[in-house]
């Protein structure tokens, strides 16, 4: 076999092997590099500081891609519910005057256990757990 041909084979084989190895290893190394968003899932979110929410008020917290209504009923008691109305998916709000959760779209009312008091909603609101860590309020999904 002549020399230039052997060289060609060597080049093709060497070049091809190294190029293909790079094309396999590059994605693998990139994969191992942790992404900027470190958490895979939303099982809990921080809802800010304790002092940011006065007793008998509520606020909407983004939980993943869905809204959650956090309510501070008294100085020490906190509750959280899915803020998606079970009627037509509008966002519910806290009504300070009557201590209820209220959907403005069709006047659905829920009590502070998430159960339907009046109006069109067919199901209760899903409840979430609330924990206080230091002075941080943390909402988590109920297992």
């Amino acid at each position: 076999m002549d020399e230039p041909r052997r060289n060609l084979v060597r080049w093709l084989l060497g070049g091809g092997l190294s190029a293909s190895l790079i094309s396999f290893l590059y994605p693998a190394f990139k994969f191992m590099n942790p992404p900027d968003v470190p958490e895979a899932s939303v099982n809990e979110v921080s809802a800010g500081k304790v002092q940011d929410l006065k007793p008998n008020t509520g606020k909407i917290v983004k939980f993943g891609s869905l809204p959650v209504l956090l309510v501070r009923t008294t100085e020490t008691e906190w509750r959280a519910f899915s803020a998606v109305c079970t009627h037509l998916n509008c966002t519910v709000q806290y009504k300070e005057s009557s201590h209820q959760m209220w959907c403005a779209c069709h006047n659905g009312l829920y009590n502070l256990n998430g159960q339907v008091v009046s109006g069109p909603p067919p199901h209760p609101l899903e409840a979430y757990s609330v924990h206080i860590r230091g002075d941080e309020v943390v909402i988590s999904r109920r297992a």
Binding site: L8, V9, L13, G16, L17, S20
Partner: peptide, 15 residues
């Protein structure tokens, strides 16, 4: 990567 694979296969064939 397919080109790299093809070159390698060609090289193997010649080898």
């Amino acid at each position: 990567s397919l080109i790299a694979i093809a070159i390698t296969m060609l090289g193997l064939r010649l080898a």
